[in-house]
Simulated scan of single mutants.
Amino acid sequence: MAALPAVLQSEWTKVRTIRSTVWTLVATFLVVVVMGFVISLLTRLNFVQFTEHNRNPFDPTTTSLAGITLGALAIVVFGVLAVGNEYASGMIRVSLAAVPQRGPLMGAKTAVLGVLALLVSLATVFAAFFLGQAALGQYNTDLGQPDVLRAVFGAACYLTLLCLFSIGVTMMLRNQVLSLGILVPFLLLVSPILSIVPKVENVARYFPDRAGSAAFQVHQTSDHPYGPWTGLAICAAWAAAALLGGYLVLKRRDA
Results as ranks from 00 to 15, higher is better:
Met1Val: 06
Ala3Gln: 15
Leu4His: 11
Ser10Gln: 14
Ser10Phe: 15
Glu11Gln: 14
Trp12Ala: 14
Val15Thr: 13
Arg19Ile: 10
Ser20Trp: 11
Val22Trp: 14
Leu25Lys: 12
Phe29Ala: 12
Val33Asn: 06
Phe37Leu: 12
Leu42Asn: 10
Leu42Thr: 09
Leu42Trp: 09
Leu42Pro: 01
Leu45Pro: 02
Asn46Phe: 10
Val48Gln: 13
Glu52Asp: 07
His53Gly: 00
Asn54Leu: 10
Asn56Gly: 02
Phe58Ser: 00
Ser64Ala: 15
Leu65Gln: 01
Leu65Pro: 02
Leu65His: 00
Leu65Trp: 01
Thr69Met: 06
Gly71Ser: 08
Val77Asp: 01
Val77Gln: 10
Phe78Ala: 09
Leu81Pro: 04
Ala82Gln: 06
Tyr87Asn: 03
Ile92Phe: 12
Ile92Pro: 03
Arg93Tyr: 11
Arg93Phe: 13
Val94Arg: 15
Ser95Arg: 12
Leu96His: 12
Val99Met: 10
Leu105Tyr: 13
Met106Lys: 13
Gly107His: 11
Val112Leu: 08
Val112Pro: 05
Leu113Ser: 07
Ala117His: 03
Ala117Ile: 07
Leu119Arg: 12
Ala123Thr: 05
Ala123Lys: 07
Ala123Cys: 11
Phe126Arg: 01
Phe126Ala: 01
Ala127Asp: 04
Gln133Glu: 08
Gln133Ser: 04
Tyr139Glu: 01
Asn140Asp: 08
Arg150Asp: 05
Ala151Val: 04
Ala151Asp: 01
Ala151Asn: 04
Gly154Thr: 01
Phe165Leu: 12
Phe165Glu: 00
Ser166Arg: 07
Ser166Ala: 10
Ile167Thr: 02
Gly168Met: 06
Val169Cys: 03
Leu173Gln: 03
Ile182Pro: 11
Pro198Tyr: 12
Pro198Phe: 13
Val200Tyr: 15
Asn202Leu: 14
Asn202Gln: 15
Ala204Gly: 08
Ala204Ser: 14
Asp209Thr: 15
Arg210Met: 13
Gly212His: 08
Gly212Asp: 06
Phe216Pro: 06
Gln217Glu: 14
Gln217Pro: 02
Tyr226Trp: 11
Trp229Glu: 05
Ala233Pro: 02
Ala233Phe: 13
Ala233Met: 05
Ile234Gly: 00
Tyr247Pro: 00
Val249Asp: 02
Arg252Ile: 00
Arg252Met: 00
Arg252Cys: 00
Arg252Tyr: 11
Arg253Thr: 06
Asp254Pro: 01
Ala255Met: 04
